[in-house]
């Protein structure tokens, strides 16, 4: 028999959230906007995500044993958490929405580490190559990117690593 979780006292519910592991907490956050906000406002800290882009897929790493694979052609994510592969579906959610969601629940506007496989050539990048829908081009070969709309993104370049700082998670949401 299903049970209404929101019928239990808020403090107890927050404690239950505190007892959940991060993978379960993320699953809960994907249930609805309300659950996302509950996770966001909870005392649980979700580590900043790192991302790895390989052609049309984005691999988000939360913890060594907790990775999400986003494909561009489906409203779902593949979850790898040590027990094989699970598929979570979220109708209407694109790669951008998932990234925005993860940034939001980790209360961060930054993807601290972004690795791009076979894209690490300093030449103009096409928007479809990197983070769908965020249009930018390289202005110089060092530290500055500008999006097509003129807004700048901060970028830090390290050996094999590029760090983008988005202005806010809303930058990644659907316009």
């Amino acid at each position: 028999m299903p049970i209404r979780i929101f019928s239990i006292p808020a403090a107890d519910f927050q404690y239950a959230l505190h007892c959940m592991d991060i993978g379960d907490l993320i699953a809960f956050s994907l249930c609805s906007n309300r659950t996302k906000n509950l996770v966001k406002s909870s005392s649980r800290k979700i580590d900043p995500i790192s991302a790895q882009i390989d052609e049309n897929t984005i691999l988000l790493k939360i913890e060594p044993n907790l990775q999400f694979l986003l494909r561009e052609d489906s409203f779902s994510i593949e979850l790898h958490r040590g027990n094989g592969i699970e598929i979570w579906r979220k109708p209407g959610f694109t790669q951008r929405d998932f990234i925005a969601h993860f940034l939001s629940i980790s209360r961060s506007s930054i993807i601290p580490e972004l690795r791009m496989i076979e894209l690490f050539q300093w030449e103009p990048m096409k928007s479809e190559d990197v983070l769908k829908g965020i249009k930018f081009q390289i202005m110089d070969h060092k530290r500055r990117l500008t999006r097509a709309d003129g807004e700048e993104l901060l970028v830090t370049v390290g050996p094999g690593v590029v760090v983008f700082e988005f202005l806010s998670p809303q930058d990644l949401s659907i316009q």
């Binding site: 299903p2 049970i3 209404r4 979780i5 929101f6 239990i8 107890d12 519910f13 404690y15 239950a16 959230l17 505190h18 007892c19 959940m20 592991d21 993978g23 379960d24 699953a27 809960f28 994907l30 249930c31 609805s32 906007n33 309300r34 659950t35 027990n83 699970e86 598929i87 979570w88 579906r89 979220k90």
Partner: peptide, 28 residues
Amino acid sequence: CKQVAMMVKGKSPEEIREIWMIPTDAED
């Protein structure tokens, strides 16, 4: 509360929504 949290261990968002009767955004 720990037991409540254990109810959804290893579950997907759809399963959690069903177990805990979480309303959809439209219902909210």
